[in-house]
Amino acid sequence: MTTPSTARVRLTVQLLGVLAGVGVVGGCVRAPQPPPPPAPSGRPGLVVLSDVDPRIHTDIRYATAHNFVGRPVDGYPEPLCLLTDAAAAALRRVQDAALATGHSLKVYDCYRPRRAVDDFLTWAGQPGGQQMKAEFYPRVAKSDLFEQGYLGARSTHSRGSTVDLTLVDVPAPEQPGYVPGQPLVACTAPRDRRFADNSIDMGTGFDCFDPLAHVASSQVDATARRNRELLRRLMTDAGFVGYDREWWHFRYRDEPWPDTYFDLPVARSSAG
């Protein structure tokens, strides 16, 4: 039987428990729960991919003017591929498998700071600034790039375990440098007409914001389909997950920072 005085004692215990952050179950005091894990220190433990595997080619487009905004992107003071140690180790395994098929990996983008994503967002909301439209988004309006999923207000790249890449033959053909102001050709054009990237034929160029770049597009020829399938198989076998709108985009499934978006610049000083 519960007396009024007992009820008052139980209520007092419950109130004290709430104030102290202690749980009360059935009138009994429950032990305090362990504190939440500490907040990230701000350094995700990035490594420079060329230190992990110098065999992998790099063509870091956002550190140059050869990208869809037409200038170096904020946050890319150095043309480096930074990745978490886990993703870089997995990519080394992909490179081993790729070499066995007579190909090598070539990366276009790896870790991408939040400031770069913000730069894209600002660019997309401004009038003009479409000097690269003819190459990178010839059939999509600039104002539709976010809505159609080609750009996002957040990017998995900022978590350090996502990479944009392709395959090149071994030995890799020489690639001419991009000259700002040179005539542009649509990324959807046949391989022998678009920018002379030394990638094997994937049906479009890199960062081609067009349905033709969707992985399952039926509009690319059999050679491009086989090459896309090869890249996807190599990557998924090593634990990466692709993105259906971009044949070049892969995220490491077991990424160590699945909910954290970092803003360190793409520079060697950000490694470690």
Results as ranks from 00 to 15, higher is better:
91 L>G: 01
199 S>M: 11
178 Y>K: 01
74 D>T: 15
154 R>G: 11
261 Y>S: 04
148 Q>T: 10
117 V>R: 01
118 D>V: 12
80 L>V: 11
24 V>E: 00
15 L>K: 12
106 K>V: 12
261 Y>P: 02
117 V>T: 10
183 P>N: 01
201 D>R: 04
143 S>A: 11
111 Y>W: 12
158 S>W: 03
242 G>R: 08
70 G>K: 03
270 S>A: 13
139 R>H: 15
232 R>M: 10
116 A>E: 05
201 D>I: 10
113 P>R: 06
166 T>C: 13
94 V>L: 07
176 P>Q: 07
162 T>E: 03
146 F>Q: 00
172 A>H: 13
65 A>P: 04
27 G>D: 07
234 L>N: 04
177 G>M: 11
238 A>V: 10
47 V>A: 02
205 G>C: 09
113 P>G: 06
261 Y>C: 04
207 D>Y: 14
161 S>W: 08
76 Y>G: 06
248 W>I: 01
258 P>N: 05
200 I>G: 02
184 L>E: 07
87 A>W: 02
24 V>Y: 00
212 L>C: 11
216 A>G: 06
160 G>C: 04
144 D>S: 15
15 L>V: 15
52 V>R: 09
164 D>A: 08
86 A>P: 04
89 A>F: 08
242 G>H: 09
136 F>I: 03
251 R>M: 14
88 A>F: 01
87 A>H: 03
266 V>K: 03
174 E>R: 15
199 S>Q: 11
161 S>Y: 09
212 L>M: 14
123 W>I: 00
177 G>C: 09
102 G>Y: 01
59 D>A: 15
48 V>A: 05
177 G>Q: 13
147 E>V: 08
43 R>V: 15
262 F>H: 01
7 A>K: 12
117 V>W: 05
5 S>V: 15
69 V>F: 06
236 T>R: 07
2 T>W: 11
157 H>P: 08
255 E>F: 06
200 I>T: 04
189 A>F: 07
17 G>I: 02
153 A>V: 15
